[in-house]
Computed example of a mutant assay.
Amino acid sequence: MTNKTFAMAVVSQDSLDSYISSANSYPMLTAEKERELAERLHYKGEIEAAKELILSHLRFVVHVARGYSGYGLPLADLVQEGNIGLMKAVKRFNPEVGVRLVSFAVHWIKAEIHEYVLRNWRIVKVATTKAQRKLFFNLRKNKKRLGWFNQGEVETVASELGVSPSEVREMESRLAAQDATFEFTADDDDNASAPTVAPALYLEDKHSDVAESYEADNWENHTNARLANALATLDERSQHIVRSRWLDDQKSTLQELAETYGVSAERIRQLEKNAMKKLKGAVGDL
């Protein structure tokens, strides 16, 4: 793997937006181009082919990683783990299988993300902000006995620490929380206190096809790009008419545009019709 590819696989939380922008800048591959690159890698071991396959699918890793962003883990880390899975998938991808790389790689990407979640995930984060950490340590220091505070004790602690009683109750609840197992173990079958459903079973939506969703999103982006390029071929007045009539949130009427340009509403209608005809020729049937 080249230094550039390795650099793209390492994601910094501070430059996450920049990374995502860079990942989205690499063009998607056609089925023919993807197969050509896969064959060059599989049969000839060409590193440049592997590089192109990886870079063109970095946006897919971001797409998958976002689905795991609700568990208190940095998106940058999720993406980085997913990139490791992508590289493993590219290494193992056989072009003769007859599937697209995006469908093959999703298993490896999710496997690496799941492993990272297993190592780091906890259902309740005890203290995530500076204020919560201060309350956490002070609450532990002020808590004189096991069990729950009564209302008088809650109000006393709240007054001493300068916080609301509800914040004390919430932090006390967090202190009492236990780490939840991500997957069932053999011992959980005999544990009456074990949850009925392990988080691993509902971590992702089993009813959605992430590959199809990804391809649909990127087709929409591709279509929007084609529309923008087609609009650029129109003269300034025609662009304004099309945007005002079809694309803006507050659409203009023919009469409003006629008053803007000092012509009849019928003339605006004709200009709109001609502009739409040109767009269809440039973009095709959207």
Rank of each mutant, 00 (worst) to 15 (best):
Lys4Arg: 14
Thr5Ser: 05
Gln13Cys: 04
Ser25Cys: 02
Tyr26Lys: 06
Glu32His: 10
Tyr71Gln: 01
Leu75Val: 08
Gly82Ser: 00
Gly82Ala: 11
Asn83Pro: 11
Ile84Ala: 08
Lys88Tyr: 10
Lys91Val: 15
Arg92Cys: 15
Pro95Arg: 12
Pro95Asp: 07
Gly98Gln: 09
Leu101Thr: 10
Ser103Gly: 05
His107Ile: 14
Ile109Val: 12
Ala111Gly: 09
Val117Ile: 14
Leu118Met: 09
Ile123Trp: 14
Ile123Val: 15
Val124Asp: 06
Thr128Ser: 10
Thr128Lys: 02
Lys134Gly: 04
Asn142Glu: 09
Asn150Ala: 02
Val154Gly: 01
Glu155Asn: 04
Ser159Tyr: 00
Leu161Glu: 03
Ser166Val: 13
Glu170Cys: 07
Arg174Val: 00
Leu175Thr: 03
Asp179Gln: 00
Thr181Cys: 13
Thr185Phe: 14
Asp189Met: 13
Ala192Glu: 09
Ala198Pro: 14
Ala200Trp: 01
Leu201Glu: 11
Leu203Asn: 10
Leu203Met: 14
Ala216Asn: 15
Ala216Gln: 15
Trp219Cys: 01
Arg226Met: 15
Leu234Val: 12
Leu247Tyr: 12
Thr253Glu: 03
Leu254Arg: 14
Gln255Cys: 04
Gly262Lys: 10
Leu271Asn: 03
Glu272His: 14
Asn274Leu: 06
Gly281Arg: 06
